[in-house]
């Protein structure tokens, strides 16, 4: 059985583009929630890289890492959003330029 597939390098370039879009969002946006969503984009780019290499090498372990990344992303989203709610309650804003000191 021989398949003609899209080369792995194309998937890696897509992952690089996705990672850079997430990085651009983290660097230029001011809304902490949008910054958080951009971090999720970067995590997904990492997942895509793992899966691309898993197919290239025929290795199921490449599917285990995205599984754990999804679980850790869920935990990270819960804690991060709790922090954002707590900051919003104390400061009344989620603009990261107005949140510059640790004390409240």
């Amino acid at each position: 059985m021989n398949f003609t597939v899209v080369p792995t390098a194309n998937y890696l370039i897509l992952a690089a583009a996705l990672f850079c879009l997430g990085m651009l969002g983290v660097l230029i946006r001011r809304n902490a929630l949008v910054v958080f969503m951009c971090i999720e984009l970067m995590l997904n780019a990492a997942n895509l890289t793992f899966l691309a290499f898993a197919r290239e090498r025929g290795d199921t372990v490449g599917h285990i890492s995205p599984f754990f990344i999804i679980a850790v992303a869920a935990a990270e989203a819960a804690v991060g959003l709790a922090i954002i709610i707590s900051v919003f309650r104390n400061r009344g804003t989620v603009n990261i330029e107005e949140i510059q000191s640790m004390k409240h």
């Binding site: 398949f3 003609t4 899209v6 080369p7 792995t8 390098a9 194309n10 890696l12 290239e56 025929g58």
Partner: peptide
């Protein structure tokens, strides 16, 4: 990534 050897078949 463009320098990677790009083959349109999967070896295994």
């Amino acid at each position: 990534f463009r320098k990677l050897p790009s083959s349109d078949t999967i070896a295994w």
